[in-house]
Amino acid sequence: MAFDVLEPGLSTTAQDQGRIGYYKFGLPQGGSMDQYSATLANRLVGNTVSDAVLECTYIGPKLVSTTNAVIAVTGAPVDVFVNGQLIPQYERIELLAGDELKFGVIQGGTKYFIAVHGGIDVPEVLGSRSTYPIGAIGGVDGRALVAGDVVPVGVGSDNGLPVVTSIAVDDRPVFSKDVKVRVMLGLYDHNLSAKGLDSLLNSEWMLTPVADRMGLRYSGPGVEWKDREQPFGAGQDPSNIVDAGYAVGSIQIPGGTQPIILHRDAVSGGGYAMVATVISADMDLVARCAPGTKTRFVAVNMEEALAARQENNARAARIWS
């Protein structure tokens, strides 16, 4: 089983839940940027949560299935066509051998996901099929798809769960142009002046087009740092620290101008002060934002972050039962 790639799309990569445990060597966790959307696609086709899917960015690929296949498309709203016929997202779709799958113009967000029963069967590298283009590992030859690729599909098995043919509307993710992202202050927030902290939490920030799997950059009023003598080895700018490990989801503000949220393919460390971190429950929300999205950062504490995480876990448990 396989997909023949007629057109690759803008940046289509194989992704799963990520490559966990190699961050200390500078290998990012990777994985589908919007994990929740990707798992809904896996649920519809009868996979497990850990099967690999294709993550599409803005412009999707044109694929031909070499055999009969069960697929689903979830994530950002987009027109999906099978042999030129419009088909719905968030539903289980049966393809026949030779059917052509292609996409129209995206109507929100940036990423949508194609799952196929059996999963995208590229080789595992360090326990994951996720594509990491900078290190040229995972996915198809360590890169995004190109025309002429043959994407292998695994042999599916019964996941033991009842078949789901459609995801209820209430369970589908929302793609908004106006979001509140919950963050925990910490790390180097004490390097901001009171005015700087106020700017971070009480301003409206706008997602710029400089946004990808590594990080998302926001425009806004900037922030002010405290005046202080820089520690040895840190560099002269007040936004510099002695190079340290970066938390995934952490927010750094190089030069104090534009906050950057580090996402799943981000560098694992560097010399910019992080001042807050997006809570794990809201990382998918950030991944769903398109450039131009108005964003407010809302500070929560650890208990609130863990409660939000539990809500997500409970929803996942319900969907996977």
């Binding site: 963050v183 520690p231 840190a234 340290a244 989801g249 992080m274 997006v278």
Partner: peptide
């Protein structure tokens, strides 16, 4: 000791670099 969200503990030994 400080937290990078709900999944990361960050321990700054010292602000400046030293062996």
């Amino acid at each position: 000791y400080t937290w990078g969200g709900d999944e990361f503990l960050f321990v700054e030994i010292t602000e400046g670099m030293s062996l």
